[in-house]
């Protein structure tokens, strides 16, 4: 009886160097704005973050919050103050005001974090899983996920995998699922790695664990259940108690648009750094900066051949690898 015939409220085609846009109903208090096609294209996320920044500077009575995803923004509003039509008019104007994708420069901080690979805590998470949940999971052979990730991606050994983690800046596309959890993707496509998730999921993961699920890296902000394959551990990224100066303004270290650069440390050093973080002796390395989307898009073709070659090797190895 007069119900919405489609989940899509409106579609706009791609034009002027901007992606196509689909506006979708997400209940009576939110609209999901989706950009481009369902493709794994970081440019879409750059555009998402540019729109999200613009929305933050264009006040509108009744607009409650905006939450970016990989290629979408969930825009929440109060329907008693604002109609869907008024909201869409506002979004149209914001989209209109933006420059083409390649003209965008995003604020982007560079955050340097240490990582200890295959440390005893992530190994403990794997051991617990083998012991209490699944004995024969191919991703947990040898009591670690590291060898499985390397094998699934056709990498010669662990060191090649570690190089892929250390060799690129990771782009924080958005924060979500859990308070403070970053969804990160390599800016250098040559360092892309992919792996299927746990099946079934794990019941315990240590705080600060670095994991990979599909093409996405994540850091676990708190001890929790989880499904990503674990490679090691970094420092705390979430602290409500604000024991370190980095958490005084917000309990979250990271935000969408941050670039993360990992450097390798041994586990003993990492544990000392944890103590230093909690004693407020460790200053996190956070540098203000920008990402010039045009310059990035110009650089991409230079590495496209090598990235394509590695992708084919990866895909070949994946077909031969067992799936959890």
């Amino acid at each position: 009886m007069g119900a919405t015939a489609s989940a899509v409220i409106e579609r706009q085609p791609a034009r002027e160097g901007k992606p196509g846009i689909a506006y979708r109903y997400a209940g009576d208090r939110a609209v999901l704005v989706e950009y481009g096609e369902m493709e794994f294209d970081l440019t879409l996320n750059f555009f998402v973050l540019a729109v999200n920044d613009a929305l933050g500077t264009w006040p509108l009575e009744g607009l409650v919050e905006t939450a970016p995803g990989f290629r979408s923004i969930l825009v929440s509003y109060d329907p008693l103050q604002l109609s869907v039509d008024e909201l869409l008019d506002h979004l149209h104007a914001v989209h209109e005001s933006l420059e083409a994708e390649r003209e965008i420069t995003l604020p982007s901080r560079l955050v340097r974090l240490p990582v200890a690979f295959d440390d005893s805590q992530t190994r403990q998470a794997v051991e617990r899983y083998i012991h209490s949940i699944r004995k024969d999971a191919p991703n947990c052979e040898g009591g670690t996920n590291v060898d499985y990730i390397a094998r699934y991606n056709g990498l010669a050994d662990r060191e090649e995998l570690y190089e892929a983690v250390l060799g690129t800046e990771q782009w924080t596309a958005f924060i979500g699922f859990f308070p403070g959890l970053p969804f990160m993707f390599p800016l250098d496509p040559r360092d892309a790695v992919v792996v299927p998730k746990y099946n079934p999921t794990r019941t315990w993961t240590p705080e600060g664990a670095l994991g990979l699920g599909g093409p996405c890296w994540a850091i676990y902000p708190v001890e929790s259940a989880g499904g990503y394959q674990l490679i090691g551990r970094t420092l705390p990224i979430y602290d409500l108690a604000a024991r370190n100066a980095a958490f005084r303004e917000s309990p979250l270290l990271l935000r969408a648009g941050d670039r993360i650069r990992f450097h390798r440390v041994e586990e003993q050093e990492l544990l000392e750094l944890w103590d230093d973080v909690h004693a407020d002796r460790y200053p996190y390395s956070v540098e203000e900066g920008t990402l010039d989307v045009g310059a990035y898009l110009e650089w991409l073709p230079q590495v496209a051949d090598e990235a394509g070659k590695r992708r084919r090797l990866r895909e070949q190895a994946a077909t031969a690898a067992p799936v959890p």
């Binding site: 997400a26 209940g27 208090r29 939110a30 999901l32 989706e34 369902m38 794994f40 939450a67 970016p68 995803g69 990989f70 290629r71 979408s72 923004i73 969930l74 929440s76 958005f174 979500g176 969804f183 996405c216």
Partner: peptide, 10 residues
């Protein structure tokens, strides 16, 4: 789908 934000009540 590629990860996105969820509305409450979804």
């Amino acid at each position: 789908i590629l990860d996105n934000s969820y509305p409450v009540g979804a």
